[in-house]
Amino acid sequence: MAGILDSVNQRTQLVGQNRLELLLFKLKGRQRFGINVFKVREVLQCPALTKMPKSNPYIRGVAHIRGQTISVIDLSMAVGGPAITDTQDSFVIITEYNRSVQGFLVGGVERIVNMNWEKIMPPPSGAGRYSYLTAVTEIEQELVEILDVEKILAEINPVNTEVSQGIAEDGEMQRDIGDRIIFIADDSAVARNQVKRALEPLGVQTELAKNGKEALIRLKEIAELECQNHITERVALLISDVEMPEMDGYTLTAEIKADPKLAPMHVVLHTSLSGVFNQAMIEKVGADDFIAKFNPDELASAVKKWVHNG
């Protein structure tokens, strides 16, 4: 176990080539779950937790860790399961999502595995726990579930999606974009809708895709059927998440820039990977911009900038 805990901080730099590393863990029972190591700051034995009055019931308490007070969320409760009762023998995964740091209380931590995004698949349709899945994969003939952390965090602390009035009322956007659309690719339904709602006050039309592969197929289809020269005749801008099943945002961007019909389109990577950030990879794949989730004014301003420059 010590080897796993010591290695997490050393391995958070992995990005690119459509690969990722998953930290495997369990909540209650045998089911394995995975979280991208790139979002993990640290893994530690659960410290003493201080309960906060009137806090969300999924927040088991706060802990003072390395000079910072961090809320600790019972991940099992947050996805509709039983509470993790034996906190002394449990672990906390310290993560950074959407510009915030939080701890996830889990029953046990196993190991780190290196995966290709092509082996990470969209979740099966269904109710209950499956509504909290953003992807699934198979490791050692067992299903590993990857949770939609953005949905969990949005339910505990809802995100503001309203754009400031001054940005929303700027009339240049309609003139610049015309009847073109903004294309949004994100595997989290919550994140897709957050982006869509943030852009609605600008009066733009949007089209959504659930992952990079689906986005690439659809963009090529639009370029072939609706455009005489290249994609920007119909799509003004692509806003893409980085982490997505089957094809990640880096690979999607590289594929777009390698296709003459798609290459002129501006690509903004919009991701919850708000901690350590690999600028060299963004430049390598040819993305035009990077925005950490989720600030509606920053997103709207970036959209206006790149549509105007298009």
Rank of each mutant, 00 (worst) to 15 (best):
V136R: 13
I239M: 00
P124K: 09
A236L: 01
D170Y: 03
L133N: 11
A154I: 00
A287S: 11
T69P: 01
F183R: 12
K257W: 07
D289L: 09
D89T: 13
S164C: 07
R180N: 05
T161F: 00
D86R: 14
N309F: 06
V235K: 15
D89L: 13
D289C: 10
T137C: 15
I139F: 07
Q10F: 10
S274N: 02
K220E: 13
A63L: 01
L49W: 08
E42C: 00
Q45F: 01
R32L: 11
D288S: 15
D148G: 07
K51C: 08
P296I: 00
I139G: 02
I93F: 08
V79R: 04
F290H: 13
I181W: 02
N157P: 03
N114L: 07
E255R: 03
M244P: 01
V62D: 03
F104G: 12
E169Q: 12
D89F: 11
R218S: 11
N116H: 13
I217V: 14
A236W: 06
F104A: 05
K54A: 03
A168V: 00
H230R: 10
F290G: 12
Q88I: 05
A280C: 05
E243L: 05
I156R: 00
E140M: 13
N211M: 09
N229F: 11
F183N: 08
S71N: 02
F91Y: 15
R11P: 06
I177D: 07
S131C: 06
C46Y: 07
Y130P: 03
V15I: 05
A191Q: 04
F25S: 11
K257M: 09
K293A: 04
L14H: 01
D241N: 10
T253N: 04
Q45M: 01
F290R: 11
L23E: 00
F33L: 06
P296K: 00
M265L: 14
E42H: 13
R192H: 09
V242L: 15
V276W: 05
E200H: 05
V204E: 12
V8P: 09
E243P: 00
G249T: 04
Q45C: 03
I217P: 06
S55Y: 06
D289W: 07
I231G: 02
I4R: 12
G286P: 05
G203N: 02
